[in-house]
């Protein structure tokens, strides 16, 4: 029982983390891209590149968090 409860709380905190973990790489990508663009004066190449990269990172993060427990079961 105690073990199951810990599992529920762990999953609850991971679920509530999903939203933030998606937003941060995308916004980070936007700012990083804009900063590199302003350094190299190459609008908007790096902006778009980093936005796309941020989206991919966001989804890989989601994938990693979501499949965290599945991996463990397979290994056993």
């Amino acid at each position: 029982m105690a073990k199951k409860r810990g599992h529920i709380l762990e999953n609850l905190s991971l679920v509530s983390y999903l939203g933030v973990s998606m937003i941060v790489p995308i916004i980070g990508g936007v700012y990083l891209g804009r900063w590199i663009d302003s350094l190299l004066n190459s609008q908007p190449i790096f902006l778009f590149a980093f936005i796309i990269m941020g989206v991919i990172v966001a989804f890989t993060n989601l994938f990693k968090i979501a499949t965290k427990d599945i991996d463990k079961k397979k290994r056993k």
Binding site: Y17, G28, M53, N61, K64
Partner: peptide, 17 residues
Amino acid sequence: PLNVMGELSTPISLAFR
């Protein structure tokens, strides 16, 4: 680069939430 960015985003999202 994607993995590095993903790892760097962990403390940022932790702190900001």
